[in-house]
Simulated assay, not measured.
Amino acid sequence: MSSPYGPEHAPAGDVGAVLMMIDSRLKSIHDGTSGDEAEQRELVAQFTASLGPGGVDDLLDGACTLIYLYMTWLRKAHEDHGKDVIEYVVPSLVASMRMMPRSIGSEAIPTMAGLVTAAGIGLSPSLWRKQYGEWTEAEMTPLEATVFLLAEHINRIADDRDFATRLISEALTRADEEL
Rank of each mutant, 00 (worst) to 15 (best):
L143C: 08
D159T: 15
S106E: 10
E134W: 10
A151S: 11
L93V: 08
R75C: 01
L115F: 09
W73A: 04
F47S: 15
E87W: 03
L123S: 04
V147C: 08
L115C: 14
P110F: 08
T111M: 14
S106W: 06
G82F: 05
G62Y: 06
P110I: 05
V116A: 04
S24A: 14
L26G: 01
L66A: 12
L93G: 00
D84C: 02
T141R: 04
A118H: 03
A119L: 11
Y132M: 07
Y88S: 04
H78N: 05
M140R: 06
R102H: 06
L51E: 00
I86F: 07
A95H: 05
I86P: 00
T65C: 12
D14R: 14
L123F: 13
L115E: 02
L69G: 08
E137P: 09
R161M: 06
G35L: 09
H153S: 13
A151D: 00
A113W: 05
G62S: 07
T146N: 04
P125K: 04
A113K: 01
L19P: 09
R75T: 12
E137L: 15
G62D: 02
M97C: 06
R166S: 14
E170F: 09
G52N: 05
T136W: 13
M21P: 02
G35D: 01
I29P: 05
V116W: 00
G105Q: 13
V56A: 04
H30Q: 15
P110K: 04
L19S: 11
Q131L: 14
M99Y: 06
M71A: 04
G54E: 10
R161P: 13
D57C: 12
V18L: 08
D58N: 11
G114H: 05
V15C: 12
S169V: 00
W128G: 01
V90I: 15
W128M: 04
L149N: 03
A113R: 01
A77D: 09
